[in-house]
Design a protein around this nucleic acid. Sequence first.
DNA 1: AACCTAAAAATGTGATACCATTTGGGTAAA
DNA 2: TTTACCCAAATGGTATCACATTTTTAGGTT
Lengths: 238, 238
Amino acid sequence: MIDTENDALNIPEITGIPGGTTQEYVYERLRNAIMLGAITPGTSLTMRGIAERLGLSPTPVREAVRRLSSEHAIQIKDNRRLTVPLMTSDRFEELVALRIAVETHAALRALPYISDIVIDRLTEIDGSMDRFVAERDSDQLTLQNQAFHRMLYSVNPAQASLPMIESIWLQLGPFQRQVITEVAEYYQIDRHKEVLAALSARDGAALSAAIANDIVDGVLDTGRKLLAAEAGGEAGQP
Amino acid sequence: MIDTENDALNIPEITGIPGGTTQEYVYERLRNAIMLGAITPGTSLTMRGIAERLGLSPTPVREAVRRLSSEHAIQIKDNRRLTVPLMTSDRFEELVALRIAVETHAALRALPYISDIVIDRLTEIDGSMDRFVAERDSDQLTLQNQAFHRMLYSVNPAQASLPMIESIWLQLGPFQRQVITEVAEYYQIDRHKEVLAALSARDGAALSAAIANDIVDGVLDTGRKLLAAEAGGEAGQP
DNA sequence: AACCTAAAAATGTGATACCATTTGGGTAAA
DNA sequence: TTTACCCAAATGGTATCACATTTTTAGGTT
């Protein structure tokens, strides 16, 4: 019975959150597992199962699960079963549209605070992404891609939208990774370069368009293909 | 010592969440308290204090507090003290701008699904708001205003932005209520009527503008005045 | 053989107990 | 009077325990 959970939880150990609580550790570990697709959407888990698997008491696990549930990363079904929600075509389109809306907004709000130093750092991250593309390291690619966007939006000192953006990333998570894995070569048409150019020119309209293009090219198009393939090969939804 | 907490927690009893867990009850009750401004921003609370005040064990309280903390409705300071974050001018501007961005987006995504039945229901809610304006019942006014927006966005069956919108409401919460209380008469210039007109005409641009105007008139302008007054009379931030 | 039923195992939830850490206040010294 | 320090009280965190519900299994009935 718990064997299925064993399968779903063979997560790379978190490298060690320094002064964190156990509950934080569980949260980060589950979050990573979801992001990296280590928990196949649809498989059912139990809190006690996770606790036993991690050698912990149910208490901190329950808190972590509830947090993830309130971020819509985990579904608590009516019968006490936990699952990572399956992605449907409608939900996917909605999440991507929302991501574009919020991220272009965040980018525009960050633009007034952009400095050359920040542009340099962003360029650096973008450069490291090129290397990871060459090495086909999709985990690091995902990580650096997120770092790029996060740094851009965080330039705004009153930043309020980042938590929501991260929540969208999490919901799009298992998918986004799959997408990047399958079509890593796309990244050679690097939309981040357009973002950097728009930042240098302090051009809001161009920035907005570049962010939207980055999301569309990086997630939307390929995500649609994947969903279509899934629907063809195997029924994703009953 | 707990007297301060007593002061801050004289919350109207939740009218009874039917089959909910204790943790859910605490969450809803604290959430309401924050929304209605029953917890003065800045006053420090403790988990055990809240638990004792509510006659519960610390366990469900901690879970509820953590959830609220991850929604940025409660701040967990470094010294184990819980506070509702103080509103600053920058943060306020940022939250309102974000609210406009996300809510106009949500409205536009809902527009294709609008039916005459929905318009009727929205009109009904708007009518009840008029009555509450006359009665100066600002709590019900807040509630109905939220119901109006929530119903509009929920027409979209793949809705994904509502949780984020509610999170923004929560962060804006104590403030928003104060605003509505002070300037309830504003609502006679009813922007909701413009929203309804745009919906009837299935006019996206007009809808977007009407939602933005509703937020600007209802929150932004008066919120700015309030912040200015606070800054003048008493230092809100050191 | 199919279906209903009863017993047994397991699950989520909340209270309690225990521990390490922090806080606060009062005493002692300057 | 002020300042440094120390000890008791309180706090957050986790594990364990107890309980009500649910799920699963086994058995018996039609």
